[in-house]
Amino acid sequence: MNILKLIESFTNEGVIKSLGEKQSRRDSFAQFGKIGAGAAMAALPLSMLFTTKARAQSSTPETATAALQLALTLEYLEDEFYAIALDTNGLIPAADQAIIAQISQHEADHVAFLQQALGNAAPAKPEFDFTGAQGGAQPALLDPFGDYATFLAVAQAFEDTGVRAYKGQAGNLMSNGDLLTAALQIHSVEARHASQIRRLRGQKGWITGNSRGDLPSFTQPIYDGEQNTVHGGANIVGLTATNGPALTNNGATESFDEILTGQQATTIASIFIVP
């Protein structure tokens, strides 16, 4: 199955229903398979879709396929990271096991979903080095599987990156409402994860200003730009509450998340990818 098939298959009501009704992934995929023959039919509408596609500002990649490929790479990263952690004896305290296991399950689900969606266009899983040593090419930056606090810090970095990266690709998926909706549905799950990981670390669930908190300095690009308070040309700083406590500038920066472009997200992920 490839992306063309997915797009057409998404227009099949049965598949849409299956996505909405919490059927198992296996069930959904079986349905994808049944209607995979619709690829040829998809050729005409697709050519229209991609030529009339709306563009997100200065965002690369700029096609729906490339957007999903970036998403899959980020999901590979998260999935392997949590899977290794769960397999590392003594790393995750019993009190947090249910949380990390749930996140790990979702990342595995996202990998499978995007792999199936992309079919032959799915990139292979990169080789990751979560110490940041690039496979030994340079000194390690971190020891995430030897120290739980470090593990959580890196998890926060990944989740906050994921939220911004998916948001940045939304415009590239506007040509197909079903793909866009699925991406949005993953995006909000990443945001739920981000909030939970941040709160486990004693941080707020949301980002204040462009603060990386206590994360190491190489993570700053994940937070750059988060201080923005101008949305659609309207600066929300200076807006006032009609009833209730005064609004704060911190609240203004926290109340909207920001995008990362495809290039920015790729650069961040590359810290952990062996070249």
Binding site: A56, Q57, V163, Y166, K167, A170, G171, M174, L184, H187, S188, V189, E190, A191, R192, H193, A194, S195, Q196, R199, G205, W206, H231, G232, E254, S255, F256, D257, E258, I259
Partner: peptide
Amino acid sequence: YLVIAGKIVSIEARHASA
């Protein structure tokens, strides 16, 4: 407008999680 909606929905999801 889509990007603005995206900027807001992730905050709602962070809230829901918390």
